[in-house]
């Protein structure tokens, strides 16, 4: 791959993470257990979609084939997506949505904090802008882990189950491949593997305070960077891309 191809791929990974999780949160609109939470999840989703717009617009410009944010969002099939497997997992119950969010918010905060000093000024700018919002997301999901974990017997059990079910998706966040290494050497990308201790320290402390057990490391899955996704992504894309697939290039 050329340098340009690698940067394009790197930006897709970041943008796809934000877009797919943003779309998942949008699915909660009108379905959350209470009104305040409906507003919260859609606001968080909106921030993520805003990040995705900036990142995918940039990705399209780097690629130089005339694809804009919409083209990249609505005209790529499953194997071309680069989002983490964790983020495409179905919402499940509220506890599962919050566990997914909690894992990712803590990861994304560290990731964007590091990216905000990237030698690529545009990427650094996007990261710095988004970081302020992620600080709020992280506080919000952390509050729910504490509240549900250290809540009633039922909320505790549901929260623990959610944490256990998603634990195997955690290692993929900290994986480094050839593209990551090349961009790290260029001063553009960051070493995500080095973020793990800080993530562990924060997550361990919160799980302990929430009276939740940190799961044992056993199974884990990976493959999103090669376009290998779970079956869930196809269904998500079918809904998200429907209009542009049925009526290509339709405009508001």
């Amino acid at each position: 791959m050329t340098d340009k191809d690698m940067l394009f791929d790197y930006l897709l990974r970041l943008g796809d993470n934000s877009l797919i999780l943003g779309q998942r949160l949008a699915e909660w609109t009108g379905h959350t257990p209470m009104l305040e939470e409906d507003l919260a999840l859609t606001n968080v989703g909106l921030d993520l979609i805003g990040q995705a717009r900036m990142l995918l617009t940039y990705a399209g410009e780097v690629e130089g084939k005339g694809r804009d944010e919409d083209r990249l969002a609505f005209h790529r099939d499953t194997a071309e997506w680069r989002n983490l497997l964790l983020l495409e997992q179905p919402n499940g119950d509220f506890a599962k949505t919050m566990a997914r969010q909690f894992f990712f918010d803590h990861f994304q905060y560290l990731q964007f904090e590091a990216l905000s000093t990237s030698s690529d000024e545009r990427l650094a700018g996007i990261a710095a802008k988004s970081l302020k919002e992620i600080a709020y997301h992280r506080r919000h999901s952390t509050d729910w882990i504490l509240r549900l974990g250290d809540g009633t017997a039922e909320s505790h059990e549901k929260m623990q189950t959610a944490i256990d079910e998603l634990w195997g998706f955690v290692p993929e966040m900290f994986e480094m491949d050839a593209t990551d290494e090349a961009l790290l050497d260029a001063g553009i990308g960051i070493d995500v593997a080095r973020l793990r201790p800080a993530w562990d320290a924060a997550v361990n402390a919160i799980l302990a305070e929430a009276t939740l057990a940190r799961p044992e490391d056993s199974w884990s899955v990976r493959g999103s960077r090669e376009g290998k996704h779970s079956e869930h992504l196809g269904y998500l894309l079918a809904e998200m891309q429907f209009l542009q697939r049925a009526y290509p290039d339709a405009k508001w």
Binding site: E36, L39, A40, N43, D47, Y136, H140, D143
Partner: peptide, 12 residues
């Protein structure tokens, strides 16, 4: 009441 209000920039 909630960290997220009627718009992204407001809390309730």
């Amino acid at each position: 009441v909630s960290e997220f209000g009627s718009t992204a920039c407001k809390a309730l």
